[in-house]
Design a protein around this nucleic acid. Sequence first.
DNA 1: CGTATGACTGCTT
DNA 2: CAAGCAGCCATAC
Length: 117
Amino acid sequence: MPLKNPKLTPFEKAVYGAVMTIPPGATRSYKWVAMQMGSPGSARAVGNALNKNPYAPYVPCHRVVASDGSLGGYSGGVCSKRKLLKQEKLLKFSQYEARNPKQCSNVKNSNDRNLFI
DNA sequence: CGTATGACTGCTT
DNA sequence: CAAGCAGCCATAC
């Protein structure tokens, strides 16, 4: 069932595959994904692939964040992405949110960037 | 085939 | 510490 859309390039398939490898409640960076597929410099291309991501929630693209700890982006909006992550339990986000309850768009946390469990 | 674009990254200002 | 700039990659036009 997974990944049988021929319209997708091998690269995208590789990306989705790598992303699906991410365990629930965990976050990885675009760079990480790029590296998993053997192209450490293709982080940006990875973002492109996820942007088109036809497998929406099937591929846990919401578990992929920027290398600096920021949420990066999300087709459904960074807000949704953040909520999903929060819902999946991880995040030391609680700490951050405790300090910024109303914040919903950006999570440029330099201190709480320890998102990788 | 060359140009433009973007959910990135790392280094410098 | 935050903002800006330049480099890199795959895809769409």
